[in-house]
Amino acid sequence: MVAFLLMITFILILPPVDKYLDSYMPLHYSVQLGGAIATGIITGLSGSWFKKINTTKYTASSLLFFIGTITFWMIPRSMDLAVNNNFVDTVMFLNLYLASLVLGVTLVNGAFVLKSALGIYGLSMLLTMGIIFTQYETILCAVYTLEMQKETGKVLLILFSVFFLLFLFKSSKSLITLSNRQYNQENNIQGIDNEKK
């Protein structure tokens, strides 16, 4: 799994693929940037040796690193520089990947509340960017057209809808598991108390 994800990451950063994805804004945001973040997080979550690391004390650091990275690279001026300069583009991709990997590793042992909060943060970013890109009449990124900007907004809103449903499903499943566990624990305690009596 990790090898497969690393292969995808490598493909996304290859010059001909990178150039093609950079040229069209919806692809650049959804496939390239989304791909860097997704492969990073999934690699962090699925790497078996990561599970052995005690990451609890690094939760705040990894969160801040991830949020800082995303915030910096989502600034339109940063995006323009990355598309116009191959070196900066590579740095951006690797930075996003690394920040997502570190976040994924932290999430492995993370509490349900933390994962939910991050999910909500990610969804709200998708929704906000989707709305801004579709509604704004001014071009934000100098390297793309207004039409591409609006198309990217629509793509982000579609992604928001898909991930929102997935998030609801996953959260409900986790909540049900948690409450079942709690119910069983309470029942076990009551059973022991009854036996003692």
Binding site: A60, S61, L64, R77, A142
Partner: peptide, 27 residues
């Protein structure tokens, strides 16, 4: 120390890059 350093680093980078939040686009 580590979270504080990371926070300061990214805050400084964003403030400097946007000219104290004066400009976000190339234009």
């Amino acid at each position: 120390i580590l979270p504080f350093t990371i926070f300061i680093f990214w805050s400084a980078a964003i403030v400097q890059w946007t000219g104290n939040f004066s400009y976000f686009t190339t234009y």
